[in-house]
């Protein structure tokens, strides 16, 4: 990340604080997502926190920096991958009998790898929600620059 580029983004103070905190926000979103079945949270809240971490990066450093880390085609592909992953988990239930059957091993409650397919579904929903909302925000921001040029 370029801290000394004065044209793009906000001032040096905001950039330094963002560089310190944005990793923690992303990590917290992943934690909320992965522990959705043993504590409050889940894929929806975790996905929105992941989207907020990238939006934070984009507001502080300008949109080129965020687009360098997460290109636009990559966003749309990963969002579709999230939707297809959730549908794939549903179709995998046919191996045991019917749609959305949970045939993964259940394990003991209150452990990280328990509760069957819930952890995979949480990851799929977090991908879908987070990258979908980030894509919406990116499209809303991009229009301002194109209308100024014309």
């Amino acid at each position: 990340m370029s801290y000394d580029n004065k044209d793009k983004g906000m001032t040096l103070i905001v950039k330094t604080i963002t560089g310190l905190t944005v990793g923690l926000i992303l990590l917290y979103g992943l934690y909320i997502t992965l522990h959705g079945h043993i504590s409050p949270g889940g894929g929806f809240a975790g996905g929105v926190i992941v989207a907020i971490s990238f939006i934070h990066l984009m507001l502080a450093f300008g949109r080129e920096e965020a687009l360098r880390i997460l290109p636009k085609t990559f966003i749309s592909v990963l969002e579709s991958v999230g939707a297809l992953l959730f549908l794939g988990i549903a179709i995998l239930g046919f191996m045991g009998g019917y749609f959305f059957l949970d045939w993964f091993s259940k394990g003991k409650p209150f452990e990280l790898f328990s509760a069957g397919s819930i952890i995979f579904s949480n990851i799929a929903i977090a991908l879908k929600v987070g990258l979908g909302l980030f894509g919406i925000f990116l499209v809303l921001i991009l229009l301002k620059f194109t209308s100024k040029d014309e």
Partner: peptide
Amino acid sequence: VRSANLVSS
């Protein structure tokens, strides 16, 4: 389900 969070399950 053996999940601690009822809403998630």
